[in-house]
Design a binder for these strands. Structure first.
Lengths: 206, 206, 206, 206
DNA sequence: TATTAAACGAGACGGTACGTCGCGTCTTCTT
DNA sequence: AAGAAGACGCGACGTACCGTCTCGTTTAATA
């Protein structure tokens, strides 16, 4: 969700203003979420007039998406070590950190909030939610290419299971465990990757 | 999250007012989510003074939780057919419908929003999030009792995978597919249950 | 303005409650006037339920008048030393103190406020405003009886001049002079009594 | 009490909004006084947002003073006919009308209410109360210049007597006499001016 | 170099929600 | 029936943010 088109004539927009606005938006949102996220506050924190803000993004959602996609997009880049479990563990660890980070968590918030109405979903989903999914999908595709995966296993449910399990894991995590999860990410991620690996493996002999 | 304690002396609270407030809260929230969810609006819709509302619940979260837990708690009751796949499919279908319902979706929204701060998480998680998890956990426990499950499979990651996969499935669903999901729930749920069944099954012969 | 009639049957009213209410009313009003004078606050300060208050007086005005007339009525009792100037000075001094006292000042406030509407004026004026006037009127009557006053001087304007001059004197007094006025009342009163004495005296020889 | 200072930068305030607010304030106050005088109501009647009102005046008092001083200030301009009695009668008549007018009466109300606390008194007194006093003081000064007044008569008590007598006269006036006072102002004013004239005249031969 | 059109900060504007408090009425239990 | 307690619908309080709108000033591309 880039900023709105500007007129070709006249003084050009100051790119520094855009940057400061996006940074301010993420900081404000990370504080306490929707509750205290105000356009006014973003402009104030950025040291910018309200007009400069509204000129670029008309709604809170547009502004947040602009800020959040820069954070989420890197998740689509995954490693390719030649070993499925290793790649999955690496990706899962990064997703776990993503959901444990305030700014990363914002991704989910916006996604959840925008799922309610048809208007907002599409632009955001294509950019953020899909970014996460596509990275893991690639891992499976590579593994299948290597023959590490029986071809009869559908990939999409596996991806949804892995991403979803990490999400629910964080979602149902008591607050004082979050620090532990940040430091011992591997221990938290391993059982979840295990589930996927079992499901992806060839089934027992009949 | 029940309403705040009332004093033993004086005129007792009108339970009808509480009911109207909760109903109004769910209706308002289902409209467009946080955006247009105002205490003022809830009281107005319920035909009730603001004081009667604030007397019972101080914050929007408290109010929403009160309304939402009546919707979420039934999810903890699961079937016990004697067949693991059948029970999982049944539970998963209900969870899918839960997340496709505006009021049910509110459950997730609140959960996501409250995860940011330590204050809100605990009461809500224990009541709603855990309700969903505990139902599925029971299914696995029963299956293990029946010997349908190899004892070396940890249950918790399986639960998180199932719940999470349904969640991500809905989360990444284009808006115009939602109606289809409501009507053909089985088709949407089956691949996800499959993943869990594979992961829960005894592993291939070495 | 006595309290409202009570039913002849049933439990009689507690007179102590009435007293505490009136005392509380005066204290509350003396604090910052109309601004912070609330029925709720009076009942709270008196340690009494709201119903006990509303049972006795329906409006703030009724309650205040009940409280204020006990303070104002003594002003109608004046000295009779046999000397006009002396009596006037004595009465004027007491009126000055009355207007310098927070509770006494409340008398004026209520009077001024109630003058706007026809409903409240009569009961209050007869009791309070007239109390002040009648005392001074009596002084002039006695002086006339003694022959100290030429009979052609109308009394009413003299009374109004004396009371009014004290009132305006206080009204236009800088705040930090009020303490001085309390201690050196005679110095403040003398010039005003002088004016009245000159006006009441026989006129210059032609 | 002018409106609060505005910043030199940014969009300037709309003077029309200020005018509408002051007019609305006077109308609201004239209705039933303090009782029903609400900031909310003033803004509503003026067709203005509450913010525009609070931006200019923070309290009811400030707002009322702004509205009232435009009404009271003209009282400081008095006639100078060369005849003391005539000038006094003229001034007294105008003051009488001032106190009989709802808006003019507000002057007194505010004055009385603000006398209780030190904060409010000064700005109001200097502008309104003194305006009335200074006009009459000027009349006496001119008369003294003409030799119409014996120099040993102090002016201030005379002024206080005149203004005060009119005030008390109105204050103790039954409601149904007010109309008569408006129409036959001369008859009401004459006895009061008489008192002042007698007091101001040279005293009887010893 | 002078013109010009938009960007920019600041903040006014009519609204509306916030959470609190007082209004006057009512309902409950206790004295 | 009095009394203490407090719930009830209502609306004002003063603050903050909404999105739009003027202001005066700055800035780069065009004429």
């Amino acid at each position: 969700m880039p900023e709105k088109q500007q007129s070709p004539t006249g003084r050009p927009r100051d790119p520094d203003v855009s940057e400061r606005l996006i940074a301010a938006a993420l900081e404000e949102y990370a504080r306490t979420g929707w509750q205290s996220f105000t356009m006014q506050g973003v402009a104030r924190r950025a040291g910018v007039g309200k007009s400069a803000l509204y000129r670029r993004w008309t709604t809170k959602e547009e502004l947040l998406i602009a800020g959040v996609e820069s954070v989420a997009l890197p998740l689509s880049e995954t490693s390719d070590s030649g070993n499925l479990r290793e790649d999955l563990t690496d990706a899962a660890t990064r997703i776990l950190h993503h959901f444990l980070d305030p700014t990363g968590w914002a991704t989910l918030r916006i996604s959840v909030d925008s799922t309610a109405s048809p208007t907002m979903l599409d632009p955001f989903q294509e950019r953020v939610t899909q970014a996460i999914r596509s990275g893991i999908t690639a891992i499976f595709t590579h593994a299948a290419d290597r023959g590490e995966l029986t071809s009869d296993v559908p990939v999409r449910p596996l991806v949804e299971s892995l991403v979803g399990s990490i999400l629910v894991h964080v979602l149902s995590m008591p607050f004082d465990v979050r620090d532990d999860a940040r430091q011992n990410a591997a221990a938290h991620v391993e059982p979840l990757v295990d589930v996927i690996m079992r499901a992806a493996s060839p089934q027992p002999c009949p």
